[in-house]
């Protein structure tokens, strides 16, 4: 972007140096010059720092599709989806969640999703997915959908992907029920909870391994280890201990001295 900025600043200087141009025309011309030149599909929505290593360009490319899954019985897909939305939502994007009646909204808040820009939409009939999601793509930067058992018709799915690409919205699919391959596929391949014992403690944090793959720029597989959620309910990177700690000195019991 810096070249664009320099061009714009040069433009401003030239306009004021010339001194002949009317103020209105000058402003009009400036407006034209500083207009964003990046195409919608080159822009990216921000993600939480912990997830940046998973995504090409460290952000969600506008107009792309993302599928999120977990190895069967592993769990973690919903939390990963919420974490993926959080930063963009906080930065001002609106999020629509379709067909996710059991979404844990308190967890969403803890992960950083801005609830004032979150809208929940009931799952439409199988025939209705096309029109409902198309309407949402027009108004929302991020649309998360869970098609459930009925699934989305393949023709509808293709049309929606094309529309999302045109409007610069990101379609996030949770679970099965969506035909076609996503641009970016995220999968939770390992998950382990910490903090819960035999009758004591509580679920404190979950260590997960997330892999990403997909098409085009996302084709190179990536993998990160994360706390998802961490003990604060957010996303945190996993830091490996640098070296095993030296064994503690033996504790000397107290003894009477006099």
């Amino acid at each position: 972007m810096p070249t664009t900025l320099h061009a714009a600043l040069d433009g401003i200087e030239q306009v004021f140096d010339a001194g002949t141009m009317g103020a209105a025309e000058a402003l009009e011309e400036l407006k034209e010059r500083v207009r964003p030149v990046a195409l919608a599909q080159q822009q990216r929505l921000p993600v939480l720092p912990g997830l940046a290593d998973l995504l090409p360009g460290a952000g969600l490319r506008r107009g792309s599709t993302v599928s999120i899954s977990a190895v069967p019985q592993m769990g973690g897909a919903t939390t990963l989806a919420l974490a993926l939305l959080a930063e963009a939502s906080r930065a001002g994007s609106w999020v629509a969640a379709v067909g996710l009646p059991s979404l844990g909204l308190v967890a969403a808040d803890e992960l950083g999703v801005a609830l004032e820009r979150l809208v929940l939409v009931a799952a439409p009939e199988r025939d209705g997915w096309g029109s409902v999601v198309a309407a949402l793509i027009d108004g929302f930067d991020l649309v998360v959908l869970h098609a459930g058992r009925g699934g989305v018709r393949p023709t509808d799915a293709r049309r929606l992907v094309a529309r999302g690409r045109e409007r610069g919205s990101v379609l996030v699919q949770l679970g099965a029920g969506w035909a076609g391959e996503a641009d970016l596929a995220l999968q939770v391949t390992a998950a382990r909870w910490e903090g819960l014992g035999e009758g004591h403690g509580h679920l404190r944090a979950r260590r997960v391994t997330v892999t990403s793959g997909g098409r085009g720029e996302a084709a190179r597989p990536r993998q990160v280890d994360l706390w998802l959620p961490s003990s604060e309910g957010t996303v945190a990177p996993v830091y490996e201990p640098l070296a095993a700690r030296p064994a503690a000195e033996p504790v000397r019991p107290l003894r009477a001295v006099s």
Binding site: W94, L118, V119, L120, V121, G128, D138, G139
Partner: peptide
Amino acid sequence: RAARAVARVRGLLGDGAVAI
């Protein structure tokens, strides 16, 4: 933009289908 999209979806799905 979001409010317009929501109004459209409410028209498609009926009252009570969209919640915040």
